[in-house]
Nucleic acid binder design. Structure first.
Lengths: 388, 388
DNA sequence: AGCACGGGAATTCCCTTGAC
DNA sequence: GTCAAGGGAATTCCCGTGCT
């Protein structure tokens, strides 16, 4: 036909993956399954424009490549995996006349290699070179020294089509595709906010609020965190609302301390108590989290948790000390951060990961290679066969 | 003479040591120096009852042994170290007529071996066997399989005397001694309390207090922590004082949350504000730490941080809600924990580490061995010579 | 009961801090 | 400056939890 054999990725692999070690995926276990972007889906690819007259069968081989498309030492094990690669052969007469088919990587896990001691990495690179899966025809002369502990992640998946004609001759094709980058799961930015203390306060006065994080913060640079107190937004009102910025005084591995400012001059509510959100944001990673927070106006005064009675208005006059310099300022509505429901983590935008654009796959002459000598190489350690 | 050559340890090595890896002590660096029990002192041994008529020289060799006195794969580098052992030779004619001398291990570091991959440990054990320093004549037939990642620490230092006669024949002696056990520095129990929040409160009412720890807690079992509020002790008074126990509600890796009880029924002070200590103890590890804490009695009432004026006594009558069930109880004076000055860490007692008593060194026949073939073996990797 | 997931312990190494 | 100490990042592994 006019259009030639092609392959595309229907479902990209998950952006963050917990790579497992060989030791963790041995003995019938898998672990570290590779999923697709959507929840619990899996990676899917489509092969199109098959010509059953020319092609007795079509084989898709998938393996790892670096962001710039060099062969990569991490490998795949699980269903339809051999020699560290995913390999699926489809006889064209099983297509029922269709010229395309889809593949799902149902039970495939992506396995990393040891970096320590350093010769383990070298061995793994050599093994990967021996597998001879180089879909983008990269120059391999410098491959054996290009990988270090620092540049093994992120990586991509690459898929290439091999065709077998009716003389049973198998040849690689230039139909190849690569996935988006797969990062280490520990790089996924998250703000593991457990709770804050105290979770309520009064309008006047300043005091510290402590934020405890179960997960260690990715940095302890106070200026890269922001804390805002925001009145819970009721759908009906577009009018003025309370918003104040809290000064971040300290950041430790699992703790942030911020100072609640005096809110007297900002207070416009007629309510005695106002439900708010405290929104804490990591500006460096563009992530935020929030918790509900109560601000009480002592009109009528409630004396902490132990006063059940109220004072009369006459008393209030001299109870207040409004000489504080409020650090909070009233923000424009457009600056307002939408309060989160409690315990919700929101991703402001994707982190700006390095996204060097790799060169387009070339259709240059493929080195003489029988696709199936892939399997002739020694089995990778731990790369036990899948369901076949 | 009647009494025979003997060796004793004058200064034991530090109980907790940060063993360094070979990679950390290479290239002229030392690091991980072994110290004595006292601050910045060093290990010292004394050789006694030397007989200059029989002994042309006396050599002390020191090396590592397990708690039960088998040769141990960790090794020593630094001044006077060769082949992973400390070796010091003393000519008896340099003693000036004395029959004893002392040795200090001034610049010696104790180096650990890699456990991963497992063959590294095996190599290290084999190297240690080749060194042939076995001062307590242990049966070595099972040595090559006795060590695992789990039983390499703690360990001991052992010192043995070798003598050289006037025919220049060197022989080991049964004069040997072993040190107390040396544990890994990470096992040293400590409570890295950074601060608590809030650090003041009022007599009535209950609320949470958060304790943040820079160092991860060794466990998160609430029942194994205790928190007490103790009135600062003035030397002059043996009379009643305030003490209350706080209920520990939650323990996380870096956080403990405890609830301050209502103190109304315990309050006997005439003071408006009482300086206290909050003492937090890890009962499992017998360590505690404390911070100062202020308890204010709202008589006259101070309304948090914003009320500069006081209420008159008439008002107080209905401000109080004393229906709380105080969880605190008045303790006997003998139960009282001495308040610590702020930021002081106190060790209640030494942790109960395993202290299996090894057998006494035996004077059995020592295998034929020239002490100085120790040095004939290949240099340990990283065991660069010291100052000689 | 099996098995993948996720937490976190254990191990190794690197790099800043601090003392001289 | 030198270099050991200490903090903590990076790596590897183990195991409890939860789902089927």
């Amino acid at each position: 036909s006019m259009t030639s054999l092609s392959i595309e990725i229907l479902e990209q692999p998950t952006r963050y993956h917990r790579f497992r070690y060989e030791k963790e995926v041995s003995g019938g276990k898998l672990g570290g399954l590779l999923y697709g972007r959507s929840e619990k889906s899996c990676v899917r690819v489509r092969v199109s424009n098959i010509d059953p007259l020319m092609q007795k069968s079509v084989t898709v081989i998938g393996g790892t490549v670096s962001p710039d498309l060099y062969p990569h030492p991490f490998f795949m094990v699980g269903d339809d995996c051999r020699s560290g690669t995913f390999q699926l052969k489809k006889d064209t007469d099983s297509l029922g006349g269709k010229t395309e088919f889809e593949i799902s990587l149902e039970k495939v896990s992506l396995v990393c290699v040891l970096l320590r001691p350093p010769d383990k990495l070298q061995e793994a690179v050599n093994r990967r070179l021996a597998i001879n899966f180089n879909p983008f025809n990269k120059d391999l002369t410098s491959m054996s020294s290009m990988y270090t502990a620092r540049n093994l992640k992120p990586l991509r998946l690459a898929f290439q089509i091999f065709v077998t004609d009716y003389n049973d001759v198998t040849a690689p094709t230039s139909a190849a595709v690569y996935s988006e980058e797969i990062y280490d799961y520990k790089q996924e930015p998250r703000l593991g906010l457990y709770d804050l203390h105290p979770s309520s306060s009064e309008v006047p006065g300043t005091h510290d609020i402590w934020f405890y994080f179960d997960a260690p913060l990715s940095h302890t640079d106070c200026s890269q965190f922001s804390v805002h107190l925001v009145e819970d937004h009721n759908e009906h009102d577009n009018e003025a609302f309370l918003e104040a910025e809290l000064r971040v005084k300290m950041a430790k591995k699992h703790l942030i301390v911020a100072e609640k400012p005096d809110l007297t001059e900002l207070w416009q509510s007629a309510n005695e108590r106002l439900k708010c959100q405290v929104v804490i944001a990591d500006k460096k990673n563009n992530i935020k989290d929030s918790r509900s927070f109560i601000v009480e106006n002592p009109r009528p005064v409630k004396l902490g948790v132990y006063a059940d009675e109220v004072l009369d208005d006459d008393l209030l006059g001299f109870l207040y000390d409004t000489n504080h310099q409020p650090e909070a300022k009233r923000l424009r509505e457009s600056d307002r951060v939408d309060p989160q429901t409690s315990h919700v983590v929101a991703q402001l935008q994707q982190p700006s990961q390095p996204q060097s654009q790799p060169p387009v796959a070339q259709a240059s002459a493929y080195p003489a290679l029988d696709a199936f000598n892939l399997a002739a190489h020694h089995q990778l350690p731990g790369a036990s066969g899948g369901s076949n």
